[in-house]
Design a binder for these strands. Structure first.
Lengths: 366, 366
DNA sequence: CTGAAAGCGCTTACAG
DNA sequence: CTGAAAGCGCTTACAG
């Protein structure tokens, strides 16, 4: 094995092929206008192959003024990232979209609690050509500045008053569907455990969907039935305890995160309250394990892989200088009916795993 | 907002501060030997701040011959990555270790089924200074070549016959502990569902630990009791069905992955077999939700965050030119006793969540 | 204590 | 069809 083999440059290839570095570059980059003699091309290609030549990325970036790198910034709090069953899927979606391109992915997590301006530097240093911001925060000033500087950005999730392109689901509508489902099953007193604190837009929106569903069906909104979760199962456990202390207590709860819902289930088990007969539950996310808990969770399916993929595609377009066809891409969600809501109770074996998918009308692209 | 503000270079800073670019570089990089007049330094710093100057990463990499980027290569099959509850923790561990450094993380997933040589190029193009290879495969030739070329590599997991520095847990020992625990509880006929196919070293090793535990306690090894999982809950469901078809069937099963164990639990529920009284279960991983399923899973805790952190630290050292103090770093695992194994049965409320931790002797660094 | 100059390894007008 | 030369934005001996 050739230890520390001196790195090979285009000069080496040029020498071996008996041409200039210009020609090497022209051939290797398949420059459209340059017309190279077939024989010359062959020689260059052969020399490059033989030497195992690969153009130096830094040199190339320097002259092209392109890093050929996209940044994924994770703005969620560690507690969330830690238990986030979606991150792998989102990641796979992104890298999948980047697969056939020359772009690579740089991953960055953002300091808590206040998002610093650190990640701005990635753009200023030209280490990155554009950003995918996952879980953008309303109070993130760096984001606004970045956008102001004209750096390509795609939001995974979205921010209300900013015109930055975003890829997201319609949380309001999805939550609405989940709660309407519960109402349709006859529930009149329905609690909600949010997925996270209300300064997260997704949490706000899911709560809004809950309220809309109540309003639309003439049910009163009772703030006492609203409890905040914080992304963890533990928070769901606590929240459910709180809900059970209410008089009268709710007969159903919409838990805006499956992970949090699992915690709620534990409390219910402790208290010997049967799900769904004594308490119906609908979750949100459709985490990989949602079908495997007891009882299987009725939940809202989030297209994690697709969210990642679309975000990457969109950013790729932006970086290439295209104007996005739409500033807000909304992906479909679907209500997956399993046993925890009680809908399958009389229909068939409630342990049924696949679940019945009630596709949401939430529309393609807006 | 200043649209497309022309990028600012060290030349701009030099001009504003009334010095040369050399001085700007010297000041900004805090070069040890260079002695700069305090006043000059102040002026440079001020000018840089005022201009919002950030040195161009590509130019810097080019001259330093350092990408200041580390690569994380995910070699697991998509099915695994998809449901991998650890990836986020590992990621957090890595980025945490990189936090205070100038290094960033590039994420790459490897094509299936045969790992291509694609990721080699990341090193050849000098896009990356070193690799963390997660889930290295025995048949990965690219890896061997990379190592031969002297590229810094750290394995997350490990390969038997290679002297590449690795960070891992002692899978054999951890599995041994889990199975010995079951034997101590009185079980004599114990099945195993592997976490994945046996060409994954971790799967092999956990199986080996299972066999050692049997042998050590004078129990016969019965190949019929060995079923392969493939990282998914679904595979656990199937595997348990198979095990239940055996006569006599096992009274306990060691499932070498919590995710797979959840699938096994579903089959058990379907068949109305009570856990742990009719079938005891021990998992592996201690995924965030292990404590929240029914019954809470007795399992082996894997220090995911720490694995990521140590791998990053080690690679940082290698990239800095240090020789690793040890070629194999082995992190501790711990048996977390919850309800699924039956050990808490007579002791206390089996629903107890925290679980009892039986720290494994598996030693610090080897 | 500070600056002029070379060089990192590419790409790209511009000649010929 | 191909090459000499400039330049991307830094860092780093080397002078002074």
């Amino acid at each position: 094995m050739a230890r520390k083999s001196r790195r090979v440059t285009s000069k080496d290839v040029a020498r071996l092929a008996g041409v200039s570095r210009t020609t090497v570059s022209l051939v290797l980059n398949d420059v459209p206008h340059a017309r190279i003699a077939p024989e010359t091309r062959r020689r260059v290609l052969e020399a490059a192959r033989q030497l195992g030549y690969r153009p130096n990325a830094a040199a190339r970036s320097l002259v092209r003024q392109q890093a050929m790198t996209l940044g994924l910034i994770l703005c969620h709090p560690p507690a969330h990232v830690y238990t986030d069953p979606f991150l792998p899927q989102v990641l796979l979606g992104i890298t999948g979209a980047l697969q056939k391109t020359e772009y690579r992915l740089l991953l960055e997590t953002v300091a808590e609690p206040t998002p610093g301006e650190d990640y701005l530097d990635l753009a200023r240093e030209k280490r990155i050509d554009g950003f995918i911001i996952s879980g953008p925060r309303v109070d993130d000033m760096a984001l606004r500045r970045l956008h102001g500087e004209g750096v390509p950005i795609v939001l995974l999730g979205h921010l209300p008053d900013l015109d930055i392109p975003s890829v997201d689901v319609d949380n309001v509508r999805a939550a609405y569907t989940a709660v309407a489902h519960l109402i349709r099953l006859g529930h009149r007193r329905i609690g909600i455990i949010t997925n996270g604190p209300l300064h997260y837009t997704a949490s706000q929106e899911r709560l809004a969907g809950y309220r809309q569903a109540l309003a639309k069906h003439g049910l009163p909104y009772d703030p006492a039935l609203v409890v905040e979760g914080n992304f963890t199962a533990e928070s769901g456990e606590e929240a459910m305890k709180h809900l059970l202390g209410l008089h009268p207590r709710p007969t159903a709860v919409f838990v805006a995160s499956d992970t949090v819902a699992l915690g709620a289930l534990v409390t219910l088990r402790h208290e010997g309250i049967h799900v769904p007969t004594e308490m119906a539950l609908v979750g949100f996310d459709d985490i990989p394990l949602a079908a495997y808990v007891d009882p299987p969770l009725t939940t809202v399916r989030l297209p994690a892989y697709e969210l990642g993929r679309e975000a990457a595609r969109l950013l790729l377009a932006l970086v290439a200088g295209h104007t996005p066809p739409t500033t807000r891409t909304v992906l479909n969600t679907a209500l997956v009916v399993r046993a925890s809501c009680g809908a399958l109770q009389s229909l068939r074996d409630p342990r049924e795993k696949g679940g019945e998918t009630v596709s949401d009308v939430t529309g393609a692209r807006s």
